[in-house]
Write a protein that binds this DNA or RNA. Structure first.
Lengths: 207, 207
DNA sequence: CGTTTATTTTACCAACCGGTCAAAGCAAGG
DNA sequence: CCTTGCTTTGACCGGTTGGTAAAATAAACG
C-alpha cells in the first residue's frame, strides 16, 4: 500500500544509463535539425542503440522531444529568477547577463534546441511562453521599472532590456558557427564577456 | 550564332510567375522548418502547384533552397556595406543598426531562413561565411577600430560590436513569436527602434 | 487553322519515415 | 541451474519522401 496510486518503480541501472544516452543523443540531433528534420534512426545511432530499442525506453519521437523541452524550460528561466529586487541594481543586472552568457557557453545545444522551437513558431511551448515566461518577465520588468524610477539605473524600457540580454547572450550559442567563421582562432566567449560587461555597464549606469 | 555558348533563353510569362511563386513558398516553408524539415509537397501546396509541376521548374529540393540562400547573402550584407568610413562615425553606426532592424521588420522570413541554416551548422554557406562575410566584416572592423583610435567613438571591440548589432536586430525577426508572447498587444518593433537607438548612442558616444 | 512548344497531370518508384510485434538473449535472485 | 522479468533484435507495416516517365493539355505562333 502506498500513499500514491501507481508506485513509481525505481529505474534499473541499465534504464538510467540508456535513457540518459537517448536524451543526450536527442538533444544533439533535435538542436541541430529541429523536430521535423530529425529522425529516430539518427537519434538511435547517436545513442548507440537500435531504433526499436530506443522505442523501448520512450514511447515516441514526440516523447523524447517533449521531455527535453520541459526539462529545459525551468533551467532556462533560472538566471532571471535569481535576479533579486533587494540587491544592488546594476550588479544584479550584470550578474544576470553573466549567468545567461555562462549558460550559452555551457549549454549551447540546449540554447539551439530552444531557438529551433521558437523559429518553428513555438508549437510546443507557446502556452508556457504566454504563461510562466510572461509572468516572470512581467514581474522582473516591474522590478527594473522601480529601479529606474528611483534613479538607481538609467531610464530604459524594461522589456526590451530583457530581450536584449536574451538576444546578446544566446547569440553566442545559436550563431556559434558564424561567429567562429568570422573570428577565426579567437575564442568568442572571452571577448563576449568583457564586451557585454562594458555595454550593460554603460547602458545602465545612471547619468 | 551567339557570342556565348548556350543562349540564356528568356523566361516566359508563366515561368516568371511560377518560379516566383515557388521561391516565395519555399521561403515560407524552409524558414519555418529548415531544409530537412521541409517537404516538396508542403512547398508545392503553398505555391498552388502539384509536386511534379514544381519539379518542372526546379530540378530538386536542393536547387530551390540554394537559390534562396545565394539570393539572400548579398542582400543580407548590404546594410553593412553601406556604412561609409568617411561619414560621421556615430550616425554611420546608428544608421547601420536602423537599416538592419528595418530588414528584420520587412524580411523576417529571410532572417529565419538564415538563422535556420546557421543553427544547422551552416553546411551550405560555411564557405561564404569564411570568405565574403569574414572579409567584409574584417574590413569594417578596421574602420571602426580607426574611429575608436581617433577618439570619435568609445573604445569598443569592433567584431563584438558588429555581432551585437546582428544579434539585437535579428532577434526581433527570429524570436518574434516569443517576444509577442511576452509583450502581448504592443508592436515589438516600435519599442525596439527607440531602445536600440538609445543603447548604441550611449555605447558609442565617447566619454 | 495546324503545328510546335511549353505546361500540367496521372501513375508510379525506391528509399525512408515513425512505429509495432514476437521471438530471442540476457541478468539476477532463489 | 532455472525461472522470471528486463532488454535487445530482426522482420515487418502503412504512410511519406524526393524524384521520374509519359501521356494529356494548354499556349504560342506562323
Amino acid at each position: 500500500m502506498s500513499a500514491f496510486p501507481a508506485d513509481p518503480k525505481p529505474l534499473t541501472r541499465i534504464q538510467t544509463k540508456n535513457r540518459a544516452a537517448i536524451l543526450d543523443a536527442g538533444l544533439e540531433v533535435f538542436s541541430t535539425f529541429g523536430f521535423r528534420g530529425s529522425t529516430l534512426d539518427q537519434i538511435a545511432r547517436a545513442a548507440g542503440l537500435s531504433k526499436p530499442n530506443l522505442l523501448y525506453y520512450f514511447p515516441s519521437k514526440e516523447a523524447i522531444h517533449a521531455e527535453l523541452l520541459t526539462g529545459l524550460l525551468s533551467t532556462w528561466l533560472d538566471p532571471l529568477t535569481l535576479m533579486r529586487a533587494d540587491g544592488d541594481p546594476v550588479p544584479e543586472l550584470l550578474g544576470y547577463v553573466r549567468r545567461k552568457l555562462e549558460m550559452s557557453r555551457q549549454f549551447p545545444r540546449e540554447s539551439r534546441l530552444f531557438a529551433n522551437e521558437i523559429l518553428q513558431g513555438a508549437p510546443r511551448v507557446k502556452a508556457a511562453l504566454e504563461g510562466e515566461l510572461k509572468d516572470l518577465v512581467d514581474a522582473k520588468a516591474e522590478v527594473i521599472r522601480g529601479w529606474a524610477a528611483a534613479g538607481k539605473i538609467a531610464d530604459v524600457h524594461p522589456h526590451h532590456l530583457i530581450f536584449s540580454i536574451w538576444s546578446l547572450t544566446q547569440h553566442y550559442a545559436d550563431f556559434d558557427v558564424q561567429i567562429r567563421a568570422v573570428l577565426g582562432e579567437e575564442d568568442p566567449f572571452e571577448g563576449a564577456e568583457a564586451y557585454l560587461d562594458a555595454l550593460f555597464t554603460k547602458m545602465l549606469t545612471p547619468a
